[in-house]
Computed example of a mutant assay.
Amino acid sequence: MTAPQTLTTFAGRELHLHVSGSVSASLVPWWVNWLRFTTPEVIVNLSVSVRAATFVSVEALRALANGEVWLDDWDAGSVPRSWRDGQSGGSECFIVFPATLDTVMRLAQGRAESPAHMMLQVTGLPIVLADVIPAENEVIDHWRGVLLKRPNVSFAPRIDTPRAIDRTATTSGFNLPGALAIANEAITESRR
C-alpha cells in the first residue's frame, strides 16, 4: 500500500482560474470548493468561457468562490475593468483550468477574442495551463512550444486519468494541485 500524496495548495493570497469549455469544466466547482476548504484565506477569482457555461454555471461558481466571477463575454455586464491591464483583482497568477486545445491554440496565436483572452495575452503575471488536450501530434506540439516561449507561461504536470468518453487510460494536465505547485514556484521566483 502506498502512502497518500500530499496535495499542494496555493501559497499566495489571490489567484484567478479561467475555465474553458470542456466536460472537465463540470469538475471545477469541486476543485474550487477544495481550494476554499484547504486555503480559506486565498481569494479565488474566476472567468468562465461561454463554451464552459455549457458544463458549469457562473452562478454555481459565484456561490463557491470568494472573489470576482464573470462570464468571459464582451457583452457580459459583470466583466471587471482590471482585465484591461492584464489583472484580475489582486491575483498573483492565472491558471487556465481546464485549458482546451482550442484555448491553447488561440493563446499561442495571440488571439484576444474575449476579455479573458485579452487579459492573458497582455499580463506579465504567471500563467499555468492545465490542459485537456485529447491527443498529441506535431501541430499540437508546435503551438505548445510557441506558448512556452513566453517566460510567464507553464503547463501543469500531466497525470494518468480516464477519458471522459470511453474511460480508456490517457494523460491530462487537468491537475489543479500540480498547477498550483507550478504557480507557487513562479510566484516565488517573481518575488526575488
Rank of each mutant, 00 (worst) to 15 (best):
L71S: 07
P134Q: 04
A112I: 09
E68N: 11
A25D: 02
W74V: 09
A52V: 12
M118D: 01
V69P: 04
V128L: 00
I187R: 01
N66R: 06
A179G: 15
S154T: 10
S49E: 02
L107Q: 14
N175A: 09
R51L: 14
T103E: 08
G110K: 13
P151I: 01
T170H: 02
V96W: 06
L147F: 02
A60H: 03
V48E: 09
T123R: 05
D72R: 10
F55D: 03
S91C: 15
R150A: 00
S154R: 15
A63Q: 09
A60I: 02
T161N: 13
T2W: 11
T170W: 02
T9E: 08
W70R: 13
E92G: 13
W30F: 04
I95R: 03
L35T: 03
V79S: 00
Q5E: 14
A156L: 12
L27W: 07
I140H: 09
G12F: 09
D85A: 15
D72G: 06
E138F: 12
G21D: 03
P151S: 05
R191G: 05
R81A: 10
L148W: 01
C93T: 11
L35H: 01
S190P: 00
F94A: 08
Q5V: 11
L147A: 07
A130S: 13
F155D: 12
S26M: 06
R106G: 02
R192Y: 00
G67N: 08
W34C: 01
A169Y: 01
H18A: 13
G110E: 07
P98D: 05
A65R: 11
T188A: 15
F55A: 05
E92S: 13
D141K: 15
A52D: 06
M118R: 15
I140Y: 12
M119V: 05
W34T: 00
N66H: 04
V56M: 09
S114F: 03
G178M: 11
A183P: 00
A11P: 05
R62T: 08
T6F: 10
T8R: 13
L61H: 01
F55E: 03
H142L: 14
G145R: 10
V56C: 00
R13M: 08
D160S: 14
A186I: 01
S82C: 08
L129S: 05
V48A: 07
G67K: 12
I187Q: 01
E59L: 02
L148K: 07
D85K: 15
T170A: 10
D75H: 12
P151V: 02
T6Q: 14
F94E: 07
A99W: 04
A65E: 08
H142D: 08
I159C: 10
T168N: 06
N152H: 11
T38S: 14
W143A: 02
E113Y: 06
V96I: 09
A130G: 11
Q121M: 10
G145K: 08
V69I: 05
E92Q: 15
N45T: 14
V104Q: 09
T171S: 07
A179L: 11
R62V: 05
L101C: 07
A135P: 00
P98V: 06
N33Y: 01
L7M: 14
T2V: 10
A130K: 10
T161Y: 12
A164C: 04
G145S: 12
L148I: 02
P115I: 05
L71E: 12
A11W: 07
V96L: 06
N33M: 09
R81P: 03
P157Q: 12
M1E: 13
L125C: 00
R163W: 03
A25S: 13
L120N: 05
R167I: 00
